[in-house]
Design a protein around this nucleic acid. Structure first.
Lengths: 222, 222
DNA sequence: CGCGTATGAATGAACG
DNA sequence: CGTTCATTCATACGCG
């Protein structure tokens, strides 16, 4: 159950205190935001909004509280993933890799190991790789039973989700071709922001040297 | 089973509570590996290393923990993709000129614990096998293209990347002219004045309607 | 108040 | 290359 933060901003005095309010850490959606997001998810069938949609959604939800594009992005990602995950556990009698959320227990020494064989270096990453184990994991085939259904029954259009989005019995949503797919080029850039955090006691000074020299020389065989 | 081949992995959680986990499939880069990868990415402008580079990079990074070529490959691919994606969410696609990096500004960037406990592989088999110290890198905190590091300044010529790493504003890299780097690939701003987004802060009651219409229609103002 | 759970955030791995 | 999936880490919150 989601927290019923009526108006967000917990106002807890922990670290954020005055300055950034509640968003000192992670985004805490307001009930309205959640309601709308779910509506979009279930009633409009939006599962993986594209950048454009994300922007619009976040812009709209901004009325209800602080929110960013990435929040919307993650929300849909998580919601979808968890729904699927939950379903996997409930409907699948045999979970291939059932490992409960035992975060408090050290995992037993599993590790099939034999599968590793890192040495010898596999073929080029670009083509050869193909692992995706997860045996018994049909990408799409999950029946989605949306028991959500908002009380209000409006909003019918939704963007055709480009994907087939497991709508097995999810016929509730009606898809309308609404997007002209105006893809204005998004160029722009200026970010290049990266986090660093490097306070390692390891003597790496010489490392980059090694690395650099490594890359500098194309000496590959001959 | 023979000696627990769990890769040691002393993963620690924030509060110093460290729990062992993570011993499995997925590669978990160590802080040093990440640091170096980022350095290569930002300071050396490597975005899509070719096979040779990947080999060398992974080989070099191996001294800091288990790693394969594909890890390096994926890392660059993901890093690049995410950088762009993030930008796509936060920036306004329809804007005449570069706008600042949205209003994303919540920077936790405060490492909980400074001591990372390098844990130089407690008791590992004598084989060259290594530690792979669980990493548990404190990868968080989005620093805006700040100084990353790079106390070293060599690594001059690097193999010319066959790919065109679309550099965004990567002009920041002050290292050395590693490669040709064709910058003429600058994307021209098509100035798609798509402008719309007139999200007024007015609290709609029937929000979902508003939203739906938002997504449903390209609503070009004209 | 400490713990368990729900969920936001991140990221390795892959797919199309 | 953009997108998607799986898994994991971190944390807000409510509960007992």
């Amino acid at each position: 159950m989601e927290a019923t933060n009526e108006d967000n901003v917990g106002s807890y005095s922990t670290k954020g205190t005055f300055l950034c309010r509640q968003s000192s850490t992670r985004w805490t959606p307001t009930t309205d935001q959640i309601r709308i997001l779910k509506d979009l998810y279930y009633n409009n069938g939006i599962r993986s909004p594209n950048a454009d949609q994300i922007q619009r959604i976040s812009a709209s939800l901004r009325q209800y509280g602080k929110i960013e594009g990435k929040n919307v992005f993650y929300w849909f990602q998580n919601h979808k993933a968890r729904e699927r995950q939950k379903k996997r556990f409930t409907t699948d009698p045999h979970h291939p890799m059932q490992k409960l959320r035992a975060s408090t227990n050290f995992a037993p020494s599993n590790e099939p190991s034999s599968a590793s064989v890192p040495s010898t270096s596999p073929a080029l990453p670009y083509f050869g790789y193909n692992s995706r184990d997860c045996s018994a994991s049909p990408r799409y085939g999950w029946v989605t039973e949306n028991q959500f259904r908002a009380p209000y029954g409006l909003c019918q259009y939704k963007e055709q989700d480009t994907e087939e989005q497991d709508d097995e019995n999810m016929s509730a949503k009606q898809t309308l071709p609404l997007f002209p797919m105006h893809n204005e080029d998004v160029k722009s850039s200026t970010a290049t922001n990266y986090y660093c955090h490097s306070n390692s006691p390891v003597p790496y000074t010489s490392l980059e040297l090694t690395l650099s020299s490594y890359f500098s020389q194309p000496h590959d065989a001959h």
